[in-house]
Design a binder for these strands. Structure first.
Lengths: 226, 226
DNA sequence: TTATCTATTTTATTAAAACAAAAAAAATCA
DNA sequence: TGATTTTTTTTGTTTTAATAAAATAGATAA
């Protein structure tokens, strides 16, 4: 409580990455499998099995052999603390250092491991207490609270309604550059004209101007509200 | 030349710390001993012996058994690149995040290992191309050039002359807090009134106002020009 | 100049995090 | 259900960076 980070300074770089990955993978609610973690971290299931045991001992995950893992309350706190750092640094890179939104992820992956609660709280103030990162993802506050926007993927949104883009998947720079090209940004207005049943691609109007066809995979990675 | 950092991304955290330490220890000109490195890095001579061999293989140091080490040209470039990062981050922490000069070292030690030339060059621009860090140490430019000010320790400065503080040793937070208390900062004017031969302490006037007695060890860590 | 002391290096271990190969459990399919 | 496939775990190695203890080189002193 007092010093949010002191408690977490026993965690190595690698451990932090596992906790963060498990956090992201369990956003769907289910237990996370060994292979899912291995794929995400570009490592092998054997390595994951090992690390999982260690993290279970440290009480940051619940682990039942062969059944997958999920974060404990403590584990979630740690994950949110890392996510907070990651997203605040992303804002800094875009707002202050003129990075494009497709260029920040890799550097933020490094910066998120810097240990200094003081620095992050000051950074947040310096940035004017932003609520979202450059991709529209919410930034946990200093107590680790995070406010989710109830958005859905464009691929599941209703037809012929005015939609607003609230966030896009941040992991893939190519997607972000593609969105730049077609003029989709956070806050853009979209309207679905037609869903092509054959391949689930979507024809839409962007900001009442351009008509575009986007593939299902693109539509999956754009979150909208109506 | 093109990407200053890409060439250096083969270096681990630990290796970078060794190179940086050897750089600082060899500022006096002589070869650096195994024990000196071990003391500085709070590790054991046996560990240093191991690492030294690896760094010599990587051609960043010249190493003759039992005779100590010094940096090659390549090694010096790497050291200067790390120093550049460290000092720019220190400026950021003080100027933008309101850290005091005694609070920045530890965090900068972490930040200096972040690999992104782009970020550092942008950071430098964002900070207005500062030439010195908060302790008065010069910041290497993007080509790794560094401009030393020909200063000497207060303990070796002449008596009864107007002196200007150009830098102070950054490693010790307690010294920095002490200097805050007695009103010595970068740019302060000092005049030595008397050198006490018995213990080499120095009586001086600070900014034409306060008279103070400082110990030799303090005077060793304040660099001045006249 | 030999003996002693100190600094350095070598050797053998340890811990973290990874991997491949083998073994075991769970899931799927026929 | 039983057989096969897939997933997960175990076992045994590897690499990096550290350590302690032992061996050796260099410096110092008698």
């Amino acid at each position: 409580m007092d010093n949010f980070e002191l408690n977490y300074s026993n965690f190595s770089h690698a451990e932090e990455n596992y906790v963060k990955t498990i956090y992201h993978l369990s956003e769907k609610g289910e237990d996370v499998s060994t292979t899912a973690i291995a794929d995400e971290l570009k490592t092998k299931p054997a390595s994951v099995s090992d690390m999982i045991k260690k993290l279970a001992q440290k009480k940051v995950i619940n682990y039942v052999k062969y059944k997958g893992v999920n974060l404990t309350e403590e584990g979630e706190k740690i994950a949110l603390w890392i996510v907070r750092k990651h997203r605040l640094w992303e804002v800094f890179l875009v707002e202050k250092l003129k990075f494009n939104w497709d260029e920040v992820h890799e550097v933020a992956e490094q910066l998120e491991h810097i240990k200094s609660k003081r620095m992050i709280d000051q950074l947040e103030e310096f940035l004017g207490f932003p609520k979202f990162d450059p991709h529209g993802d919410p930034i946990p506050d200093k107590e680790g609270k995070i406010h989710f926007i109830p958005a859905k993927p464009l691929s599941e949104a209703p037809i012929a309604k005015t939609l607003k883009v609230v966030s896009v998947s941040d992991g893939n720079p190519e997607l972000l550059r593609y969105l730049d090209k077609v003029g989709v940004a956070i806050g853009s207005q979209l309207e679905i004209v037609e869903k092509i049943a054959f391949d689930d691609s979507i024809e839409l109007i962007i900001d009442d101007r351009d008509t575009r066809l986007v593939s299902k995979i693109v539509a999956d990675n754009i979150l909208v509200v109506d």
